[in-house]
Computed example of a mutant assay.
Amino acid sequence: MNDRPLLEPVETDRIREGVAAAVLGAPEGLAESLEHDPHGYLRLVDASRVGAEEAGRLLREAVQGARAAGHSWDAVGRVLGVSRQAAQQRFTDKTAGGASPSAPSSGGPDAPERRIIDGLSAFNEMAALEEAGRDGWHMVGYGPFFHEVEASGRPWEHCRITLPSAARHRRMESEGWVPVGAGWFPWRYYKRPVGTGG
């Protein structure tokens, strides 16, 4: 990888403008209130805090996605402008300890069986879910490099799309797709039993 930035300046400007527009535009009447209401500035601070937290979450998930796609900590560090060690220390999932997760207890004796499919990447996860779905397993959770699936008595299909618009999300649900979790940037995952499609 060369030292040339991966984004063009116009792309960087577009991202910055989009984030600023989201922070100012999401809270109802925030931009207008800044002309006459001192309290509006506290709302601006709160909206900016939410934007910064979300940007931090997206960055963590993007780094995990890059790692899942096979990129080294050295490559990630170069993009971030930090050392390999600094990138690894900041973005290694402390809860998982970098290891594959273990299957959680299934609840009670009548609870469906659950298992973890690990060793996944952005390039092989959908094939793994397709195979699991054919065998009657459906996704119930996920994280870096793994999916958690639950047994059922019928086959399932799974899909992954980049963050959908509200209209596309509603269309997916009208076609019988059920969202799984809140998404893993930049993806949103859906599932449905085979044969229920629209």
Rank of each mutant, 00 (worst) to 15 (best):
A127S: 14
V19L: 10
S48P: 12
A69S: 15
A87S: 00
E8T: 10
G81Q: 05
D46F: 15
E113S: 11
Y189M: 00
R78D: 06
Y41L: 13
L6V: 15
G18M: 05
R188L: 07
L34T: 05
S106I: 08
P193A: 14
G25K: 02
W137C: 05
E8M: 11
G181Q: 03
A22K: 05
R192H: 09
L30R: 05
V19Q: 09
A75G: 10
R168P: 01
D13Y: 09
A22E: 06
V149E: 08
L34N: 06
D3P: 07
M172R: 10
M139F: 01
W137G: 07
R170A: 10
V149W: 02
T95D: 15
Y190H: 05
S102P: 07
R171N: 07
A26W: 08
A21C: 02
S165P: 12
I161F: 05
G141H: 04
F91S: 01
N124M: 14
E35P: 03
V23R: 00
S100V: 06
A132M: 08
A132Q: 03
G198P: 08
A128R: 14
L34R: 02
N124F: 15
C159A: 12
S165V: 10
R171Q: 15
M126N: 07
L120Q: 15
E150D: 03
G133D: 01
R84F: 03
L59I: 01
G136Q: 06
P193Q: 14
M172Q: 12
G136N: 05
A69M: 12
G141Q: 03
V76S: 05
G133Y: 01
G56L: 03
A87F: 00
V63S: 00
T92M: 08
G40N: 04
W156N: 07
P109K: 11
A69T: 07
R115D: 08
G141K: 02
H39C: 09
Y190L: 04
D118C: 13
I15N: 05
E150L: 01
H169T: 11
R192E: 13
Y190F: 11
E113T: 10
F91R: 03
G97V: 00
G153K: 08
S165Q: 15
E11F: 07
M139H: 01
A47W: 09
R168L: 09
W73R: 01
L6S: 12
R14V: 07
R49N: 13
L80F: 00
E17Y: 12
R78F: 02
F145K: 11
A20P: 00
A20D: 10
T12H: 14
S100C: 07
L59N: 00
G40A: 10
E173V: 12
G107I: 07
G77A: 03
H138V: 05
S83Y: 00
A166E: 13
A26N: 08
A20V: 07
D74I: 11
A96M: 11
N2M: 15
S83H: 05
R192L: 09
R84D: 03
F91V: 02
G198D: 09
D74M: 13
F146S: 04
G70W: 03
V194M: 12
V23A: 05
V63D: 00
E131Y: 04
H36W: 13
V79D: 10
H71S: 11
A96T: 08
R90P: 05
E11V: 07
V19P: 02
R171A: 13
